[in-house]
Every structure is written in structure tokens, then in C-alpha cells.
Design a protein around this nucleic acid. Structure first.
Lengths: 182, 182
DNA sequence: AGACTATACGGAGACAGTCTCCGTTTGGCA
DNA sequence: TGCCAAACGGAGACTGTCTCCGTATAGTCT
């Protein structure tokens, strides 16, 4: 890739990160281009769709997910606490941008989605939590990581849309946790 | 209201019902106006926003919700079956249009939303189910109807977005039910 | 260094959807 | 029948998406 192309790509990602944080997932893409100091054509050449751009933004986020899972898994204690702690972490991780939870959760399980890799990162991390709990025989049978992601993602999507705060989300997560624990 | 205004209002609702069913909640409003055979101005005078129009469409739906609750409550049997049966009914009721579940669920609890009345209808119906289960001491404590609506609505929203079918939704609802039952 | 060309850029503009404004029409009343 | 408040319609302003193509230039070759 030519040096100028590489520079513009980086600028676009940086600008998009800013704009999406400020205005949510629906922000104007032309605004992103303007903020990056490039033409609209350049943006669309690098990122043919909003989703592809989204995916690029989230590169660094993958590491964050894995670190978060590490941190949660170190914690010793009741299975219920572990599970809830992962749920809250999960909600935090997918709620970086307005509209993010819905976007991510609806892509969950869709192999053709432009953000598959991100979903896989999330399910893999969740799977680690599931494995740990299953080793302790703390989970009911037939609980799959994808289902967990969908349920918790659904809560996050609702919370995001309705601007619920953490205190309102907590009891919802508790219900899900209790529904999954043995 | 003048006779022509009344007629146009009815036509608009009819057209919107059609168009939304065909194209989902994001369908063009100008298309709705065209289909109704009126100008865009007329549409926006009657229904200043998409939500207000949505609300009008759902008038008949209110009766349907109450009927559905009646029907579910007659059913004798295990509390778990009752609850699951209401959940499935609920999902069906809010999934009439694409994008509907998210729209409705995110308005849940927002007193200023244009579709408050619809949300109230839903929570009231859900409350009846909660009351019944509480009378049988089948529910955990501190379970509120709004929470139930949010959780089930979250699942419905995800299912709607990801085009999940009923067999994929069922286990999610089971988890919620199990998390709420004593 | 200078020339060449594949690669990348920019932004005008086509297109689509939302919503408003205002000149025109009409229902219903006196 | 005449009046006018109420309602209509649709042109067009505005915003966002995305494409096309003339222009610029990074990297290479001599």
C-alpha cells in the first residue's frame, strides 16, 4: 500500500473513532471524511461500508476483550459473582459506541457479517467463562456461549437504546445469570 | 375534525400498515404518503413523526395484546409453562414489523416517548401474568413487569435483527423464565 | 535527476429520504 | 350562497450516502 494511502487510512480510523464516540454509530460518514481531512471518495475506497469501518476501529478493542476475560477469570469466588462480573464487563465492552450493542449482537452467529471476527472474539472469551463454570459444574446443561452473548447483548442493546444506567441493568443480568446457573 | 381530514388520516394509517409490513419500520414516509394518495405535507400534519404514526397504526393491536393475555391466563398448568407461553406471545406481539421490538423495548419506561400508551398496554398485560404467578408464589421476589418486558423485549430485538427463528429464541426465553421462577 | 504509470486522491453531483412552507382548495356553517 | 378556518399538495430546502472521473503523486526504472 502506498504511503499516502496508509496515512489516510490511519487518519480515517482515528477520525471515525472520535466521531462515533461523540455522535454514535449513526454519525455521518462524510463528517468522518471531513474530520480526517480527506474526500468522501477516499473514505469509501478504504471502507466500502460503515460496518467495515466499524470493524477497523475495533482492532485494538480485541485485545481489550481478551484482557478483560483474563481479569475476570483470575477472580476467585462464587460462580454467580464470576458470571455477573463477566456479564457487566461484556456489556461495557460492547457499549463503546451508541448503537454498538445492537450492531454486534445482531451479527452474532452470522458468518457473512463484516464484523464476524469481532463476534468470534466475544464468543471465544465468553466460552472461556463457560468452560470454567462448567468445570465447576455450576452451569445448567446445554448452555452455549452464543446464547449467553445473545441474551446479555439483548440487555445491553435495550439499555443502550433506553439510556438505562448500571443500576437498572444489574437486575436484568441477575435474572439471566440465575437462569443459567445450576 | 373535517371529513376530508378524517378520511385522509384513515387512508394514511392503512397505507402505513401496508408499507411497514412490506418494508419494515424504516420504510420511506413519502412512500406512505404516495400510497395513501396524499401529499407529504398532509402526512406530516397528521403525524409529525414516524413514532406518532407507528402509535396510530397500533390502535387495534392494543386489543390484541389484552386478548392474548386473557388467553394465556386461562391456561391451567405449570407456572413455567404459563410464563414461557406469555413470553412467546409477547415476542410475537411486538414483532409485527421489522425494527418493532427494538423500538418498543427502548421506549419502555420512557414517559415522554410517543408510544408510551403502547408500552403501558404491554406492561399492564405482563403485570397480570406477574400477579397471577405471585399469587401462586411461583416467582422470585422483586421481579417487576417492566424488567420482564425489557428482558423479553431484548431477546425479541436480537431475534428480529438477526432473523433468528422460533427454535433459536425458545432457549433464550427459557433462561429468562428460569431466572425469574422461584 | 527525469520520466513514467499504477495507485490513490478529491469533491462535484446523482440519488434518496425527511420535513417545511406557502399558495390553493374545500368542508361546513351562518 | 358566501365566507373562511381548516386542510391540502407538492415543490424544494436540507441532509446523508455513495459514485465517477479528472487530477495528483508515490514509487520505480533508466
Amino acid at each position: 500500500m502506498r504511503a499516502d494511502a496508509q496515512r489516510n487510512r490511519a487518519r480515517l480510523i482515528e477520525a471515525a473513532r472520535e466521531v462515533f464516540r461523540e455522535q454514535g454509530y449513526d454519525a455521518s460518514l462524510d463528517e468522518v471524511a471531513k474530520r480526517a481531512g480527506v474526500g468522501a471518495g477516499t473514505l469509501y475506497r478504504h471502507f466500502p461500508s460503515r460496518d467495515v469501518l466499524m470493524d477497523a476501529i475495533m482492532q485494538s478493542w480485541v485485545d481489550r476483550v481478551n484482557d478483560a476475560a483474563d481479569k475476570v477469570l483470575v477472580h476467585e469466588g462464587e460462580p454467580r459473582d464470576l458470571l455477573l462480573s463477566w456479564f457487566e464487563t461484556y456489556v461495557g465492552l460492547i457499549s463503546m459506541h451508541k448503537g454498538g450493542p445492537a450492531k454486534i449482537t445482531s451479527a452474532m452467529g452470522d458468518q457473512k457479517s463484516p464484523i464476524v471476527t469481532k463476534c468470534q472474539t466475544l464468543t471465544a472469551a465468553t466460552q472461556r467463562v463457560v468452560d470454567r463454570l462448567e468445570a465447576e459444574h455450576a452451569l445448567r446443561e446445554h448452555i452455549e456461549a452464543v446464547q449467553m452473548c445473545r441474551l446479555v447483548g439483548g440487555v445491553a442493546a435495550v439499555a443502550d437504546n433506553a439510556n438505562l444506567d448500571q443500576t437498572a441493568v444489574r437486575p436484568l443480568l441477575e435474572v439471566i445469570a440465575d437462569g443459567m446457573l445450576a
